[in-house]
């Protein structure tokens, strides 16, 4: 009993000491392994601020959590289509990113994006694309068109894998069928639904976790894939090719924003500024293998990264960034997906 009490007192002490030193701290909430420790160490050394990193699994979790009132985070990293939602719901605050000293380093293409047109809220993290990959030893096609993915040929029968959540799959379908993103037209969405139901006949699994493993083992010949993750699969020696279909691919852009409930806003701004320094951003990109939005980072890349096909798409590639859908459009997406999954 006494020992139990001592243990408990010790734990309480740890908890309290964690709360006590609130100044000089920064709480980052990000996807797992999306925040390289060496980068954090560098920031801590330069600024004297103590950083703590927690992790989540999806934009949806982040939104639900902030929506339900979670507090204590100074920086969170949502994708572009969640930024307007967070703004409208009053969950993140203006920090004047455009006025930070390193903002001048941003590539023009990425400044004042439509999801944050005044660049008041968001600082850059990583961006990448969503498309599909295939095992080049087992597949005879070239991944030149989304048709190969959505209307699979016989060789893919029972060997095709698709993401488990609707958003990116339906966005790709929009691109393939030439239907605008977030369509509110039930007939157009029915067209998507019919296509996905037919595609399902060839699907071996709906999977967003182990795409590279599926391709390497040959369980699947083609899967939905993210660019950087596909590169990591290829680097293990598996014959994985990331496809750039002629219709285009879905793009995503993750950025740092500051929740309304943040306690260390100034530290958060310091970190944002730190990340817009090309040296630091290059460290992140080298670690992650996606793309960044800061000028001059390429000078610090390794040769492998410089030449990786996954982050150096053909210059004529169409990259479409999905906007935030209206409630009506979102409920149609939800309906289509539930029907496909029945």
């Amino acid at each position: 009993m006494k020992r139990l009490f001592t243990t408990f007192a010790a734990i309480t002490a740890v908890l309290i000491s964690g709360l006590a030193q609130a100044s000089g701290e920064l709480f980052i909430y990000n996807w797992t392994e999306y925040t390289p420790p060496e980068l954090i160490a560098k920031f801590e050394k330069e600024s004297g601020i103590k950083v703590s990193v927690d992790t989540y699994d999806s934009n949806e979790t982040l939104l639900a959590k902030l929506q339900a009132g979670a507090t204590g985070y100074d920086i969170v990293v949502p994708s572009q289509n969640f930024v307007p939602i967070l703004i409208n719901e009053g969950l993140i605050q203006k920090v004047g990113v455009h006025a930070l000293s390193n903002f001048k380093n941003m590539e023009d293409r990425w400044t004042f994006p439509e999801w944050d047109s005044e660049q008041e809220y968001s600082g850059p993290w990583q961006w990448g694309t969503t498309s599909f990959s295939y095992n080049s030893e087992l597949y005879s096609g070239t991944g030149a068109s989304l048709k190969e993915f959505f209307e699979p040929s016989d060789e893919l029968n029972g060997r095709l894998s698709v993401f488990q959540t609707p958003d990116e799959v339906i966005s790709l379908a929009n691109i393939y069928l030439g239907i605008p993103f977030c369509s509110e037209d039930a007939k157009q969405m029915k067209q998507i639904q019919d296509m996905l139901v037919t595609q399902k006949e060839s699907v071996v699994a709906y999977n967003s976790e182990t795409m590279s493993d599926l391709l390497a083992s040959g369980e699947a010949i083609m899967t939905n894939h993210w660019s950087g993750y596909s590169r990591l699969g290829r680097l293990t020696g598996a014959p994985i090719v990331y496809a750039y279909p002629k219709e285009g691919v879905v793009g995503w852009y993750d950025s740092m924003v500051v929740p309304t409930s943040a306690k260390n806003v100034e530290n958060a701004k310091k970190f944002m500024n730190f990340m817009m320094d090309p040296v630091n951003m290059a460290m992140l990109t080298e670690n992650q293998g996606y793309g960044d939005a800061v000028k001059g980072t390429a000078a610090y890349y390794s040769d492998e990264l410089k030449s990786a096909p996954e982050i150096n798409p053909p210059s004529d590639l169409n990259v479409f960034f999905a906007p935030t859908c209206s409630p009506k459009a979102q409920s149609l997406i939800d309906k289509v997906w539930t029907k496909v999954m029945q």
């Binding site: 488990q164 399902k200 699907v203 071996v204 699994a205 709906y206 999977n207 976790e209 182990t210 539930t338 999954m341 029945q342």
Partner: peptide, 10 residues
Amino acid sequence: PNLLGGGKKL
């Protein structure tokens, strides 16, 4: 259901 069954049915 998702990982072993392939998540084909909700």
